[in-house]
Amino acid sequence: MRLRNKPWAIKLVNEHPESVLQNPDPAKKINWDKRFADFSQPLEIEVGSGKGRFITTLAAQHPERNFVAIELQTTAAGIILRTKLEKHLDNLQILRGDAADINRFFAPNSTNIIYLNFSDPWPKTRHEKRRLTYKAFLSKYQEVLTPNGHIEFKTDNSGLFAYSVKSMNNFGMHFDFVSVDLHHEKVEITQKNIETEYEQKFAAKGNPIYALYASFKAK
């Protein structure tokens, strides 16, 4: 969903280049070790962070990890940044750029987890290549994930979920966890579920939340 432009958010982003990378040149590798207080910590990435409730909560809960929020909209990046500054999240960086360049923004084998939360379903067939679980994106995720890394995916859209399961299966991925009703099934996941803004909205309406963890490592 496109957010309405907020001048204060745009201004805030422009005032904090140490926290927000804006449209970095994909041809130039980003020196992430200079952007984190402790770059030796494990790195995790959320693609399409929206207003950032998920990634900022996760960063606050886990100061022993580093996080990058990839978000294309400047207003959304500003909302994330405001929370980052309020909570003093030195382990969180914001990248305002296109996720299609993720393998250019990050070195091979550099991240442990990629989070895909309530991504745009792009329901029309002609837009299949824009879906964040399309095979071209999966190939890029595989490049930047460590050998033991994985993808964590959540959506309320049954069509996108079915498509993603098929796409990942065709790519040869292993499903470590699958749920078709995350909030009501008795399931075990590796960490406490953090709800996004969209997740709270959809769950309140009674919509089932679909989730999966998938890895590229052969089992």
Rank of each mutant, 00 (worst) to 15 (best):
N66L: 15
F67N: 03
V68S: 01
V68A: 08
V68W: 08
A69Y: 01
I70R: 10
I70G: 10
I70N: 08
I70P: 15
E71G: 11
E71Y: 04
L72G: 12
L72I: 11
Q73N: 15
T75Q: 11
T75N: 11
A76G: 14
A77H: 10
I79F: 10
I79P: 15
I79E: 14
I80D: 14
L81T: 12
L81Y: 10
T83W: 12
K84N: 10
K84S: 13
K84P: 11
E86L: 14
E86T: 15
E86Y: 14
K87C: 13
H88I: 08
H88A: 12
H88R: 12
L89C: 06
D90I: 11
D90P: 13
D90K: 14
D90F: 15
N91C: 11
L92E: 09
Q93P: 06
I94R: 13
L95M: 13
L95K: 09
G97I: 09
D98P: 03
D98A: 06
D98W: 04
A99E: 07
A99V: 05
A99C: 04
A100C: 15
D101L: 15
D101C: 14
D101S: 15
D101Y: 14
I102E: 06
N103F: 08
N103A: 12
R104T: 13
F105M: 07
A107I: 10
P108K: 07
N109W: 12
S110C: 05
N112K: 14
I113Q: 06
I113W: 07
I114L: 06
Y115N: 05
Y115Q: 06
Y115R: 06
Y115E: 03
L116W: 06
N117V: 07
N117T: 02
N117P: 06
N117E: 02
N117K: 03
F118H: 04
F118D: 09
S119W: 09
S119R: 11
S119H: 11
S119E: 09
S119I: 12
P121L: 04
P121H: 02
P121A: 09
P121E: 02
P123I: 01
P123K: 07
K124E: 07
K124N: 03
T125L: 12
R126H: 13
R126S: 11
H127Q: 08
E128P: 10
E128S: 12
E128R: 13
E128A: 13
K129N: 10
K129T: 09
R130T: 01
R130M: 07
R131G: 00
L132V: 11
T133W: 09
T133F: 08
Y134G: 05
K135H: 08
A136C: 07
A136W: 05
F137G: 05
L138R: 00
L138A: 05
L138T: 06
S139P: 11
S139N: 12
K140F: 02
K140E: 07
K140Y: 05
Y141E: 03
Q142W: 12
Q142G: 13
Q142E: 10
V144C: 00
L145D: 12
T146A: 07
P147F: 04
P147E: 02
N148V: 10
G149L: 01
G149R: 01
H150I: 04
H150T: 03
I151T: 01
I151P: 00
I151N: 00
E152C: 02
F153C: 00
F153I: 02
K154W: 05
K154I: 03
T155P: 00
N157C: 03
S158G: 06
G159Y: 01
L160N: 03
F161Q: 00
F161E: 00
A162M: 00
A162R: 00
